[in-house]
Design a protein around this nucleic acid. Structure first.
Length: 196
DNA sequence: CATGGGATTGACT
DNA sequence: GTCAATCCCATGC
């Protein structure tokens, strides 16, 4: 059984392991195909500045949602990781839509499946994740739930640099399900590295 | 209190 | 390829 302690591990491990999990909200759900790790020790992480009103969630209990507004428009969904008092999280960057696709299409005003959840701002719109879900429990009976993959199922992973950041941009802390058509950006061929 | 910068997206040239 | 939309919040005066 998975509990909070599962996320109280090095954020790089959890970022890899979360590929294949399902994110569910109401009647919509998708399988995670892309993640990125963020840790207080590197400058791209919001927690790098220490505990503030914005980052306190990152330093709180693992297994909670960290949701923040990006570019004034999009809500981005993260899973808080590492033990309490360590600021770290996994950004959920893309899902393979598996349930409630028509509701997603209505929310997204897009019809093609690969346009529904292929980006961190797209998937929150498709699943109706908003700032009010910040600090909600993801493993318990909260509105948004993380469900583990079937035991024994495996997914080949690719690793590469994170998307859209200027600081610590060289770290290969982005992880994608190999071959997925739902990732947020095409994979740069020269940066491919098979992990699993 | 004023300012500025984004872990993005979609429309447009 | 370029670019605007739009708001939270960290920072600095």
């Amino acid at each position: 059984m998975f509990e909070r302690g599962y996320f109280a591990r090095p954020v790089l491990e959890v970022a890899r392991d979360l590929v294949g999990w399902t994110v569910r909200h109401g009647d919509t759900a998708g399988v995670i195909v892309e993640t990125e790790a963020y840790h207080q020790d590197e400058a791209a992480c919001h927690a790098h500045v220490g505990v503030t009103a914005r980052t306190s969630t990152l330093f709180g209990p693992p297994g909670l949602a960290y949701v923040y507004r990006s570019y004034g428009i999009h809500a981005l969904l993260n899973v808080v990781c590492e033990p309490e008092d360590v600021g770290a999280a996994v950004l959920i960057r893309a899902l393979e839509p598996v349930e409630g696709l028509d509701l997603m299409r209505a929310r997204r005003r897009m019809s093609r499946e690969q346009d529904l959840c292929s980006g961190p701002g797209k998937l929150t719109q498709a699943l109706d994740v908003e700032l009010r879900h910040n600090e909600t429990e993801l493993l318990g009976d909260g509105p948004i739930r993380l469900e583990p993959p079937r035991p024994g199922s495996r997914q080949e992973l690719l690793a590469g640099p994170r998307v859209g950041i200027t600081k610590a941009a060289e770290l290969p802390w982005r992880f994608c399900a190999a071959g997925s058509r739902n990732v947020s950006k095409p994979w740069p061929p020269e940066l491919r590295a098979t992990l699993r």
